[in-house]
Computed example of a mutant assay.
Amino acid sequence: MPAQQKKVLFCVAGVLSFACALSIAAAIGTQLWLRGRILCKTGALLVNATGQELEKFIGEIQYGLFYGERVRQCGLGGRPFRFSFFPDLFKVIPASIHVSVILFSLALLVFALIETGFFMYNAFGKPYETLHGPLGLYLWSFISFSCGCLIMILFSSEVKIHHLSEKIANYKEGSFIFKTHSEQFANSFWIILVCSLVHILNILLIRLAGFEFPFSKSKDSETANGAVDLMY
């Protein structure tokens, strides 16, 4: 492939990586990771609520990685209040998983920025046949994709397996018990998914530019001369 087309492909990949970095930064700071509805089970059982009456006992909840908002419904109207994970809910939630989600989200942001720099350096600079060249592009793209997958797996397990919404809803509740009525992942979670897919797209763009996947060369092919051999 001509060098000019390679530069165009690397520029496109760099712009996509930078867009991912901005989106990840926005996702980390919002409370739109999950939306759900919480049933006041105790209140509904007391009046034997069914059908439309049950709606009076179903509140709403939404939260992100650091804070959220909840509307408590127990038959007497909604009472909204905001909460934060640190330090309020730190002893209630699965803290190790939640902190891991935050750390991997920050790592994904950093790796996306590094990936952007490498793509732009390969487009306009004179990279070497080591981590500055196509091997580095493959490496950072794969690491970014892996971080995105870990974030989604950990957050999903925190919500579904450890019942995060119920733990938040029952925090400091004395006589009332709340159960999850429904919940779905919100915008920020899907942003992480889209960014992970973008990193896979970047890997395909590198291959389209004419560079073989790592470890795909035959054993008898000549090895690169290291940092002294120019890629272009």
Score class of each variant (00 low, 15 high):
residue 117 G to N: 07
residue 106 L to I: 14
residue 219 K to V: 14
residue 193 L to E: 08
residue 215 F to Q: 09
residue 171 Y to H: 14
residue 131 L to I: 12
residue 204 L to I: 11
residue 109 L to M: 05
residue 20 C to T: 07
residue 10 F to R: 01
residue 88 D to I: 10
residue 111 F to A: 04
residue 22 L to G: 07
residue 5 Q to V: 13
residue 212 E to M: 14
residue 92 V to F: 06
residue 188 S to H: 03
residue 123 A to H: 03
residue 52 Q to S: 12
residue 4 Q to W: 10
residue 60 E to I: 09
residue 204 L to P: 06
residue 219 K to H: 10
residue 147 C to P: 00
residue 217 K to Q: 15
residue 2 P to K: 10
residue 35 R to N: 15
residue 11 C to Y: 13
residue 199 H to S: 02
residue 154 L to G: 05
residue 140 W to A: 09
residue 176 F to R: 15
residue 39 L to G: 05
residue 206 I to K: 04
residue 31 Q to Y: 11
residue 201 L to H: 09
residue 170 N to A: 02
residue 197 L to V: 09
residue 169 A to M: 05
residue 107 A to E: 00
residue 117 G to M: 06
residue 229 D to F: 14
residue 224 A to L: 12
residue 65 L to I: 01
residue 71 V to W: 03
residue 187 N to E: 13
residue 28 I to R: 08
residue 196 S to L: 06
residue 22 L to E: 08
residue 2 P to G: 10
residue 70 R to E: 15
residue 107 A to G: 10
residue 168 I to Q: 06
residue 148 G to D: 02
residue 189 F to K: 03
residue 6 K to L: 03
residue 171 Y to W: 14
residue 18 F to W: 11
residue 112 A to W: 01
residue 210 G to R: 02
residue 63 Y to K: 00
residue 147 C to Y: 06
residue 107 A to W: 02
residue 190 W to A: 04
residue 172 K to D: 10
residue 28 I to M: 09
residue 198 V to C: 07
residue 192 I to M: 08
residue 93 I to S: 04
residue 77 G to A: 01
residue 16 L to I: 10
residue 29 G to M: 11
residue 226 G to D: 06
residue 15 V to I: 13
residue 27 A to M: 00
residue 199 H to I: 00
residue 129 E to T: 14
residue 115 E to T: 11
residue 172 K to S: 10
residue 198 V to N: 02
residue 231 M to H: 13
residue 196 S to D: 04
residue 45 L to Q: 12
residue 197 L to A: 10
residue 180 T to G: 12
residue 228 V to K: 15
residue 131 L to N: 06
residue 104 F to V: 06
residue 132 H to I: 15
residue 31 Q to V: 11
residue 37 R to V: 08
residue 118 F to W: 11
residue 19 A to V: 12
residue 47 V to S: 07
residue 99 V to L: 14
residue 187 N to Q: 15
residue 93 I to A: 03
residue 216 S to V: 03
residue 28 I to A: 07
residue 2 P to H: 10
residue 137 L to H: 01
residue 190 W to N: 00
residue 218 S to E: 15
residue 159 V to T: 09
residue 187 N to P: 12
residue 90 F to A: 13
residue 48 N to T: 11
residue 91 K to Q: 13
residue 37 R to C: 08
residue 156 S to W: 11
residue 221 S to F: 12
residue 177 I to K: 15
residue 41 K to V: 14
residue 228 V to Y: 14
residue 172 K to L: 12
residue 66 F to I: 11
residue 6 K to C: 08
residue 104 F to W: 07
residue 136 G to Q: 05
residue 151 I to S: 03
residue 61 I to Q: 01
residue 36 G to M: 01
residue 178 F to W: 08
residue 209 A to E: 05
residue 74 C to F: 00
residue 176 F to A: 14
residue 32 L to D: 14
residue 144 S to Y: 01
residue 214 P to W: 03
residue 54 L to E: 09
residue 144 S to Q: 00
residue 70 R to F: 11
residue 211 F to H: 02
residue 145 F to C: 08
residue 72 R to K: 15
residue 196 S to N: 05
residue 193 L to S: 09
residue 123 A to R: 00
residue 209 A to P: 01
residue 214 P to C: 00
residue 228 V to C: 11
residue 77 G to P: 02
residue 105 S to P: 04
residue 91 K to Y: 11
residue 119 F to Y: 08
residue 197 L to R: 01
residue 168 I to P: 06
residue 213 F to M: 14
residue 52 Q to H: 15
